[in-house]
Amino acid sequence: MNKSIIQFAILFVVLTLLQVVCNKVILFDVATPIIFIYLLFRFPVNMHKALLFSLAFAMGLIIDIFGNTSGMHAMACTLTAALRLPVINLYITREDEMNSPLPSIDSMGFTCYFKYVSTMALIYCTILFFIQAFTLNDLLLTVERIGASSVLSILLLLGIDSLVSTRREKKL
């Protein structure tokens, strides 16, 4: 248990630093990769809700402080955290289908995990860019940003996933 907490902490620091760099990336004027949410996807399913919300809020707040976005990521993170279990239940109908509480390719199977990550990334990007668009009301641009950013984020998230999980296998 302690080991996994430390692992999560290290992963969080690395992902936050990467996100700070990623915030500056704007591919084709629309796509900004959002990768720090990877951690939110990987929390155990049976984690206590209060802890989950608190961690999600804290993660978002830290990214906000770095990016001067004042509450945008904090809000999107908290809302996405609340939608996490319903999304998992959407793809996994029976309780015993997951052989470990950690959502991963091993425990869920690739198709299920891919669907789960894509849905969550899409939800996150939708919330985030609609909060951003509060002041701009340019719907087409917002939709473009949501689409492009979620595709880019999903690709990067799966890349991160492969990196992290191979390292784990080597350890075992």
């Binding site: 608190s54 999600a56 809020f57 707040l61 906000d64 004042s70 509450g71 945008m72 809000m75 909060i131």
Partner: peptide, 10 residues
């Protein structure tokens, strides 16, 4: 509470 806090910040 968290949602309200982030809304206030926004």
């Amino acid at each position: 509470v968290y949602v309200i806090m982030s809304l206030m910040m926004l």
